[in-house]
């Protein structure tokens, strides 16, 4: 017993040695499996260690507001530009040599956040239980009787919340509210995130799912027989929202240079290639060699609705709407 107590005490003393202060702190609304390989690559190349706080995109956005100047975060990497728009006044202006790397539609008008990769909202469907003619023209059709209890969604997920913000922008407040309420009444199945929706469709918990485009390829990579496939709504439908993951540097960070190096790294050919070929997202710079079956962002623009990413910063209003619909 005495020896085990000594071990405990020794462990306690060892544990009390603090970590070095020079690490970058990254708030990541993006999941660990997608982020940690690229963070490791950055550390390998620059020697700069990065502490990552993983959490929901909205949670981190509101946390940043709460923390204000005192925030330990140097960087905020968000699943969507909306959350960055919501905290834009806490962000530093990015250097021009970074913002020039991407087209102007893919960054903040005032240069406070910049896209790191593109993605599209898609409909995924079961290959076993969904016929071609059952695929709806519009996301708004999912409230129909034939979809009762069959549609999976993730109301707490940042990308979904951005999608709702975009719907408010495109359709107006009232119509979006009605759609949300009709979806709830139609017994849409609630999941905690995109990956869980895709897995849930394979497991028979739902037949349709509203997710980002890059989740299914991950499953298909390990099992080509995976019983889920991607479908799209009709061209121009708000359901085909084209969005980006984006990043910004906090104005309160005292490591602006290191933080900028991280952002630059995410836009480097190496990182963009990683997003395209490993994560199956769309690159935002033109330096990438794509697989033949992978569309570029330009090619997606015909199917996507015409919505300015800079107009999607009213996260609070979306949360309020989701709350009223009883989803939060």
């Amino acid at each position: 017993m005495n020896r085990s107590r000594c071990c405990l005490i020794a462990a306690a003393v060892l544990a009390a040695v603090p970590a070095t202060a020079q690490n970058l702190t990254l708030y990541s609304g993006r999941g660990e499996t997608l982020v940690s390989p690229i963070v490791a690559a950055f550390t390998e190349e620059t020697g700069i260690e990065v502490d990552v706080r993983y959490a929901g995109t909205s949670e981190l956005a509101v946390l940043l507001q709460e923390e204000g100047e005192a925030s330990p975060a140097d960087l905020f990497w968000s699943q969507d530009p909306g959350a960055l728009g919501a905290v834009a006044d806490l962000l530093a202006e990015l250097p021009a040599e970074i913002t020039d790397l991407v087209p102007s539609a893919l960054r903040d008008d005032e240069g406070r956040w910049i896209a790191t990769s593109g993605r599209q909202r898609v409909l995924v469907v079961s290959t076993e239980r969904v016929e071609e003619e059952e695929i709806p023209e519009s996301i708004l059709d999912l409230t129909g009787e034939e979809y009762r209890g069959r549609v999976g969604w993730a109301p707490t997920n940042g990308s979904f919340q951005l999608h709702v913000t975009a719907m408010r922008e495109a359709l107006g407040e009232e119509e979006t509210r009605e759609w949300l309420e009709a979806m709830v009444a139609n017994e849409a199945v609630v999941f905690s995130n995109n990956a869980a929706i895709v897995q849930g469709i394979a497991d028979g918990e739902a037949d349709f799912g509203l997710v980002n485009n890059y989740y299914l390829p991950r499953f298909l990579a390990s099992d080509p027989e995976f019983p889920v496939r991607i479908a799209h709504f009709a061209d121009g439908d708000v359901g085909n929202l084209l969005s980006v993951a984006a990043i910004g540097i906090t104005a309160s960070s005292d490591q602006q240079e290191e933080a900028a190096a991280f952002v630059e790294f995410l836009l480097s050919p190496q990182a963009q290639q990683y997003f395209a070929s490993q994560v199956k997202e769309y690159p935002v710079t033109s330096s990438v060699v794509l697989d033949s079956d992978q569309p570029t962002l330009d090619m997606l623009e015909t199917s996507a609705p015409d919505i300015d990413l800079n107009s999607l910063s009213d996260l609070e209003g979306t949360l309020e709407l989701l709350r009223e619909a009883g989803l939060l």
Binding site: G56, E59, V62, L63, E66, T156, L319, L328
Partner: peptide, 8 residues
């Protein structure tokens, strides 16, 4: 949920 999805 209130905390993690909305930090409400």
């Amino acid at each position: 949920l209130a905390y993690s999805s909305a930090f409400d």
